[in-house]
Design a protein around this nucleic acid. Sequence first.
DNA 1: TTGCGTGCAAAGGTTTTGCATGGCA
DNA 2: TGCCATGCAAAACCTTTGCACGCAA
Lengths: 142, 142
Amino acid sequence: MQKSAYKTKQQELLLSYLSKMQGKHFTAEEIRAHFEAKKISIGIATIYRQLEKLVSEGKIQKYFIDENSAACFEYAGEECRANEKHFHLKCELCGRLIHLECDHLEELGGHLKAEHGFVINPLRTVFYGLCSECASKEGENE
Amino acid sequence: MQKSAYKTKQQELLLSYLSKMQGKHFTAEEIRAHFEAKKISIGIATIYRQLEKLVSEGKIQKYFIDENSAACFEYAGEECRANEKHFHLKCELCGRLIHLECDHLEELGGHLKAEHGFVINPLRTVFYGLCSECASKEGENE
DNA sequence: TTGCGTGCAAAGGTTTTGCATGGCA
DNA sequence: TGCCATGCAAAACCTTTGCACGCAA
């Protein structure tokens, strides 16, 4: 299970970049483009392999935003990991991804566990719907 | 907006099949295989086009279960459509997809709207986590 | 007859994999 | 030196699209 015997430059670069950008999301391609802009070339395959490893180690998370677009990754800070209140909202109209911390959601987790035996994973769960701006726009038209 | 001027055999077959299988989920490929087994050949492109139309009409829903596997579709019964309490839970371990109706979740929708201006779409939102069985198994190991 | 829906094949995009090379220990 | 990680290219996968044909109205 412990196979990451070697430390490499790409590994470090990647992790340090992600950790500096807490609270933001990235696709594999965006990461590659970022380093390319800095004249650092990292193969896309390497990025995918590193991200996969980091996900399995719990250092970053992977989100499914849209099935036809690329997966999003985000650094999991220490606070964030132990946080049952942090959820993601995805607007179906404008595509915005919103971070939300709310006690009510923590409560929801407790309820699902107590009443339904389901242990929710806030790090992977995404709520779909309409953000406030798009919802009010929609309201005008209907 | 109303362009479905024509009724076709494939259309009927597809909708009647999906409506008979309420509460179950299908991928486009599974649908194709089902009809092939019955010696009825429907092109995969046609299935995708029909499903897309049915989704935009609200007759079926589309779920993102895993980003690297195919999208899942499910018939939206009348009761189901007007239902703010119907949510899906996806077990990350055993892969099971659970249907859940719960007043608490309806309340959650109200809270998100009132406090955060976010209008949740229950038909697309999937909660990830561990089902009761997998959660208890995990508990033993830890 | 008109034109939408179908089917096939090709294209599109994201992610994975095989294999030779390079770098860490 | 030994072996993991990298990089490139090719493959795999799901989904969309272009185009000609067939079928519904």
